[in-house]
Write a protein that binds this DNA or RNA. Structure first.
Lengths: 164, 164
DNA sequence: TGCCCCATGTAATCGGTTACATGATTTC
DNA sequence: GAAATCATGTAACCGATTACATGGGGCA
C-alpha cells in the first residue's frame, strides 16, 4: 500500500480502536524502507502520477510476527470522564448526569454501527481466514459499549436525588 | 496541596484512571499561580523546610466548575491489544491466546483490588458527600474489568481450534 | 478555467515522560 | 553519619497532531 492507502484503511476499518496521522505515517514508511522491512513496488504507471506503493519484505514479516507476539503495552490510564465524575461534588448540579447521558447515546450509536459491521462481515467475508480475528475485535467493541451503557444507567440512578 | 502531595494522591487513589508526572505538575502549578487560579499558603513553618503549598482561589473554583461541566474530550482510540488481534492471522500460533490470558489475569487482579477499595470506602467514608461519586467511578472500573474478562473468555474459545 | 480529490511530505507545536540535579529532613 | 524519604524543579527527549506546502488528475 501507499501512505495514503494506509491512512484511508485505518480510518475506514480500524477507527474505533486505532488512528494514525500523515505526520506519523510518511516518516515511518521512510524508516521502514531504510531498515529493509518494506520495499517500493513498481506500478503499472498510468501517466507519471507519483504514488509510492510499498510491500512488506520477508525481513519485515519476521519483525511483524515478533511484534505481534510481544505482550501489548498497557495504555496509560487517562479517563477524563471518570476524572470529572470523581470531582463531581464540586460540579454544577446535573453536570455529571449530562456527561453520563451523552456517553450513553454515543455508545448506543457505536453499538449499532458495530452490529451492522458484524452482519456485513459475515455476509461479505465468509471463509476469509481473518474473519475470526476481526469478529473478536468487533466483539470487544460491542462488549465495551454494552458495559458502558449499563454502567451509565446505574450511575445515573446512583447520582439521582440530592441528599440520599 | 503541594506538587508532591498532588502526585502522591493521584498515585494512591486515582491511579486506575489517571496519572501525572512531576514534569507536568510543577510547570502547571506555576501557570495556575500566574493565572491567579491558585495561591500559595503560608505554613506553620517547622524550620525552613521548603515546601510550597497552594490552595485554590475563588477564581480557580469558578474555572474548575466550568471545566467539570464541559463535556469530556473522547480519548484518542489506540488499543494495542486489539490491533495485535486484528492482525492475529499473521501472528505465531498461540500468541493471541497468550495476550488474552494475560489480560484476564490482570483484570481479575484489578477487580479484586477495586472490590477491596469499595469495602474500605464504605467503612471509612460513610457519610462523606464525595462517596457516591467515588463509588460510581469505582464501579466503572469494576464493570470494565468484568466486561474484559467475559470478552477474553469468549475470544479465547472463538480462537481455539485451528481451522473452524 | 477552476474546483475537488488524490497524494506526498515537512515544520511547528503540543502534551507528556524520563532522567537528572539539588538539597532538606527523618530515621536507623 | 549513612540511608531513606520528602520535595522542587528543569532539560532532553518522544510520540503524535495540526497546519501547511506542493502538485497531479479528473471533471464540470
Amino acid at each position: 500500500m501507499s501512505g495514503y492507502d494506509i491512512r484511508r484503511e485505518i480510518e475506514e476499518s480500524l477507527s474505533f480502536f486505532w488512528s494514525e496521522s500523515y505526520g506519523q505515517i510518511y516518516p515511518a514508511l521512510k524508516r521502514l524502507e531504510a531498515a529493509r522491512l518494506i520495499a517500493p513496488v513498481r506500478r503499472a504507471q498510468s501517466g507519471t502520477r507519483r504514488r509510492r506503493v510499498f510491500r512488506i519484505t520477508a525481513l519485515g514479516e519476521a519483525k511483524l510476527r515478533a511484534w505481534l507476539a510481544d505482550p501489548p503495552a498497557p495504555q496509560p490510564p487517562r479517563n477524563e470522564l471518570l476524572l470529572k465524575i470523581f470531582f463531581g461534588r464540586h460540579a454544577p448540579a446535573g453536570a455529571c448526569a449530562a456527561h453520563l447521558r451523552r456517553l450513553r447515546v454515543q455508545q448506543q450509536q457505536l453499538s449499532a454501527t458495530l452490529t451492522r459491521i458484524t452482519r456485513q462481515l459475515r455476509a461479505e467475508r465468509q471463509g476469509d481466514p481473518n474473519l475470526r480475528y476481526w469478529s473478536v475485535v468487533i466483539n470487544a467493541g460491542l462488549s465495551r459499549a454494552d458495559a458502558l451503557m449499563q454502567w451509565s444507567d446505574q450511575a445515573l440512578s446512583a447520582l439521582a436525588g440530592g441528599s440520599r
